[in-house]
């Protein structure tokens, strides 16, 4: 009897500690994450005007979105960013990770240097690249002139602006993914390589037949996170392209357009509808990737 009451008392103390320790986190997540999720869905059905006065709009924001050519162009731009940035970032990161995994002199120095863009703020990165791409005084045009090419207004030309932003994004994202992939590659047992060495497989064959298949779980993670972050591309565009530039419509991403609606045009209901669409796209793409991972990800 006494033993039983002691146990239940102990249990109750445990429960109290358990709930007590997660309470601050749950309260914070509730206020700043769960409530906002509800709020976005709700606001997307309202017209939220100046001073946050809102009136019921039904699906008007959504129908407006499907007829909005700027929205479609932003979506197209975003997909274009995804198509350029994701493969380039992942492939470059994988190659660099594999090279840095070899026994080579100065490996640690390389590792430190490649990682610097990852700790640098994207704002500063965008500022210096904007200066490099500058059509009048930029160093890139100077180099182009030396090689006898024609200088370009890289960031105000509709044909080059998206590519320039993509290059900067790849430059920024490679180091981060390289480190994650390097950790994955280092987890591969050296037995595989020793066996391959005995079989006479060259380094490139080893990379293709051992490294790539065995690093696929990490690769899967890298692809998922790169897709999510690329679909939300904002900082670089915001810092490199002036809002009034004619090139903006050729560079604008969905999040950029969302931002302008929410905080420049003060169309918060419409912005919420855009946010819902983006959320749905990211969700579907992630679920789709989870689905097809069995086809290419090898778990031991």
């Amino acid at each position: 009897m006494t033993v039983k009451t002691r146990i239940t008392r102990q249990k109750r103390v445990d429960w109290a500690w358990g709930y007590g320790m997660i309470l601050p986190l749950l309260a914070g997540l509730g206020l700043f994450y769960f409530y906002p999720v509800y709020k976005v869905f709700r606001d997307s059905l309202y017209t939220v005007g100046a001073f946050n006065r809102s009136s019921w709009a039904g699906l008007a924001n959504y129908t407006k979105m499907f007829q909005d050519s700027v929205m479609w162009r932003s979506l197209g731009n975003t997909l274009m960013y995804a198509v350029i940035i994701i493969p380039l970032t992942v492939v470059l990161a994988l190659i660099l990770a594999a090279l840095l995994n070899t026994r080579i002199r100065g490996r640690d120095v390389y590792r430190v240097i490649y990682f610097i863009p990852t700790v640098t703020m994207s704002v500063a990165i965008a500022m210096v690249w904007r200066w490099i791409f500058n059509g009048d005084f930029g160093i890139l045009n100077h180099i182009v002139r030396i090689f006898g090419g024609t200088p370009q207004y890289w960031l105000s030309d509709e044909h080059t602006v998206l590519l320039c932003i993509s290059i900067v994004s790849v430059w920024m994202g490679v180091g981060y993914n390289m480190i994650i992939l390097l950790a994955g590659i280092q987890g591969i047992s050296s037995n595989y390589y020793e066996a391959a060495e005995l079989e006479g497989a060259g380094k490139i064959r080893q990379f293709l037949k051992i490294t790539i298949p065995l690093v696929t779980p990490t690769l899967f993670f890298v692809v998922i996170t790169t897709v999510i972050s690329t679909l939300q591309i904002f900082d670089v565009i915001y810092m490199m392209i002036p809002t009034k530039s004619i090139a903006m419509s050729y560079a604008q991403s969905v999040v950029m357009y969302f931002y302008r609606n929410a905080f420049e045009y003060s169309a918060k209901g419409y912005a919420s509808a855009i946010a819902v669409l983006l959320f749905a796209i990211i969700m579907l793409l992630t679920l789709f990737q989870m689905r097809i991972q069995k086809k290419w990800v090898h778990y031991d």
Binding site: F32, Y33, P36, V255, A275, V276, L278, F279
Partner: peptide, 10 residues
């Protein structure tokens, strides 16, 4: 699973 830009307005 919630993208950060989704939450920023609310």
């Amino acid at each position: 699973m919630i993208p950060s830009s989704f939450l920023i307005l609310p």
